[in-house]
Structures are given as C-alpha cells and as structure tokens.
Design a binder for these strands. Structure first.
Length: 114
DNA sequence: CAGATGACCGCAG
DNA sequence: TCTGCGGCCATCT
C-alpha cells in the first residue's frame, strides 16, 4: 500500500479511468477493439495507449480485458489463457485463432452507435 | 534531441 | 481474414 502512486507516471489518469469504465461495460459474449475504445474516449488515434493501459493495469482491477482485442480480432500476445476465457464467455473463434468479429464485436459498429 | 519499440489502425491487393 | 506500407502517440535508451 505504500508504493501505490507509481502507476500514474505513465498514462493520464483520466485516460486510464475512461478505458476501465468502457471495458467494464463490455457484456459477456462480446468483444471490442482498442480503436473503438479510443474512439469512445475521443482519441481514435491513441489506440496504442489503450493497449498500454490494459497491459499496465492487469486483472488486479477485475477488468474484463480479455474481451479487448485488436481490429483484426487477434488476442493479446503472451496471454494464451485469454483464448480459454473467451471460449467460456461464448466467443466464437476461427481456425487461425481470431475471434469472430462479425458476431462478437461490441461498440461503435454494433450497439452503441446512438 | 533522435532513434527504436509496442496488448494498434487504416488502406490496398 | 492475411500481408505489406505508413502513420499515430507515449515511453525507454
């Protein structure tokens, strides 16, 4: 509890909070992309920062970051367990290991486009 | 300050 | 969906 403030040295606190808020709203059986999250935050160009935020702040906050993939439907490198989790969520996977974006994509392209 | 890296994106073929 | 090219933003060396 003492070394608790070392996280903020990297990303903007506001940006991180927004990312977490969006990720938490992702329903089970759905996935979203870094670009969509960034776009929802008003920073469609900062898709990389989203990935960085999730990498830096892992499951400690109980974020369903396993539901966040890149625009191609690819999963996070170095994290094989994610695939098992998504399978348990009801996500459909293709033969090469990419999620079925056509069915499981959540965000601007599906429901939140109001 | 410049160059390299990264859980990325868009377009074209 | 895949590959190749260029660009974006922040961090590290």
């Amino acid at each position: 509890m003492k070394d608790f403030k070392q996280n903020r040295t990297t990303l903007s606190e506001e940006f991180c909070r927004n990312v977490y808020a969006v990720v938490r709203e992702i329903p089970a059986g759905k996935v979203t992309t870094y670009g969509d999250i960034a776009a929802l935050l008003g920073l469609p160009q900062c898709s990389r920062l989203v990935g960085r935020a999730l990498k830096q702040v892992p499951q400690a906050l109980a974020l369903p970051c396993h539901r966040v993939v890149n625009a191609a439907g690819r999963l996070t490198p170095g994290w094989q367990e994610q695939r098992e989790i998504l399978l348990a969520e009801g996500i459909s996977f293709r033969a090469n290991g990419c999620v079925d974006m056509k069915e499981c994509r959540w965000g601007l392209t599906n429901s939140l486009k109001c």
